[in-house]
Design a protein around this nucleic acid. Structure first.
Lengths: 248, 248
DNA sequence: CCCTTTTAATTGTCCAGACAATTGTACAAT
DNA sequence: ATTGTACAATTGTCTGGACAATTAAAAGGG
């Protein structure tokens, strides 16, 4: 496993941040200093800093240099959202591993999530979302597809990226609106086990209340027909939901 | 407004995608082709493609080139005004009851929230947000104002509505961007007591883990200067965050 | 003391070139 | 028809240089 030069540098700097040697507000070495220290070209030093910025650890400004903005230890993953494009990109560099695939008729808990008429036919896909190379899944996820998408559901590979563009293509419609609902919920034992790495041991129930962040998304077409619902459950210790609102 | 070379190229390619001239699965010109066509170095061509990838429009693989992965859905969903207006409306029919008002220099926990340089001067207001006629506060809230707003902070009444319009008026600037971060956190004893109505009694510690939803908002002006930060803590049992993404 | 101007340090953009790593394609062999 | 192999197209990584744009900090003026 060859590690690239810029990865080594990014890793070294990242560890100085996560270990606390550099804390929030501190400055990192300038590009010129990194070039000299590691004997690399400016391209390589910039690439290392670029990765750190994309990881949300630092910000960079001309003349001010690179500044630590997050300790990195708190939440391992965050979902920066400023548009549906981000939603899509998040989905494309993670993979939806489908573990179950069923036809259902809305009832019980499913009905509560869907909010449709009782008995309406849907396809339910459940599984986890993974980031390649990382053992712990990012979240547990259940996707409901409208019965008119049963054909698509069958053809879906065991491991898929974003769903809603496929829905658009399948039906030839446009997703015109996405409603989101975010809430904090307690995690059950099996859920916590699936999402958490090592729980602090000592199975004395309730010692460390496992907390989750549940995100539900409802996808509507231009005539307000509900086509898809996704329900994902993240470990609160490893996930924060970020979004950006712009005003032009 | 000078537009950089790679921005021009990215824009040209992006328009071919959003206009439908290129659809999902189609290939973009290779880097070499772009270099030749636009008379630029490979650095510039790569930078253009990199932006498109970061925008979620394309994926790139060695030998396979650049492939369109998202159709016109690029800049589509965003909620520039509707949400800012909703944010405003939410704040105006509730009231921010200020309980403490201090000048601080960024350090410790404040620094972690602000993510600015250590020692920078801010004004911190803390209190609760209430809905008139309801006994239990909606949330605990801390607001940080940039030192240039110290005058405003002094004049604020004990009970105020939305803060950011006042910030805009005070400095004569426009809030151009609001970053939000939502996470689930465990509630401490005093916080749970302040937010919760009747806890299920029986103080047997840990029996009912109190869960909160923390929402942080960062308000930036058009030059990306951070002017205001709000940090609010809601009881999970009584609060869910809902939003709607539209596409015109 | 506060405000404006200048200066210089730092990142941002861009060029021209080199080699490495990956992988789709075509062709050969079974 | 399937499998394996060689080829070559394409992106990924990296060097060393140059100038532009931005802006924090210093210097100066009221």
């Amino acid at each position: 496993m060859k590690q690239h030069r810029y990865e080594q540098i990014a890793k070294a700097l990242g560890e100085r941040i996560t270990s606390g040697a550099l804390s929030i507000g501190d400055s990192l070495p300038t590009e010129a200093a990194l070039c000299k220290k590691y004997r690399v070209s400016r391209y390589t030093a910039r690439e290392a800093l670029r990765r750190l910025r994309e990881a949300g650890l630092i910000t960079r400004r001309p003349r001010a240099g690179s500044t630590v903005t997050a300790a990195g230890t708190s939440t391992a993953f965050s979902l920066p959202l400023s548009s549906a494009a981000d939603l899509f990109r998040y989905a494309t560099d993670t993979r939806f591993v489908i573990q179950r695939r069923e036809r259902i008729h809305a009832a019980g808990e499913d009905l509560a999530v869907l909010g449709c008429r009782r008995g309406q036919a849907w396809v339910r896909l459940s599984g986890v979302r993974r980031k390649p190379g990382i053992a712990i899944p990012l979240c547990l996820i259940t996707v409901y597809l409208h019965e008119s998408l049963a054909g698509l559901a069958k053809r879906l590979p065991r491991s898929a990226g974003a769903i809603y563009p496929m829905v658009e293509q399948e039906l030839g419609v446009r997703i015109a609106r996405i409603d989101q609902r975010i809430e904090a919920v307690p995690l059950g034992e099996p859920q916590a086990a699936a999402l958490g790495p090592a729980r602090p041991a000592k199975g004395t129930a309730g010692s460390a209340p496992a907390i989750g962040l549940r995100v539900r998304r409802y996808y509507f077409d231009s005539r307000d027909r509900l086509l898809e619902v996704s329900d994902s459950l993240h470990a609160a210790t490893a996930f924060a939901y970020e979004m950006r609102l712009r005003r032009d």
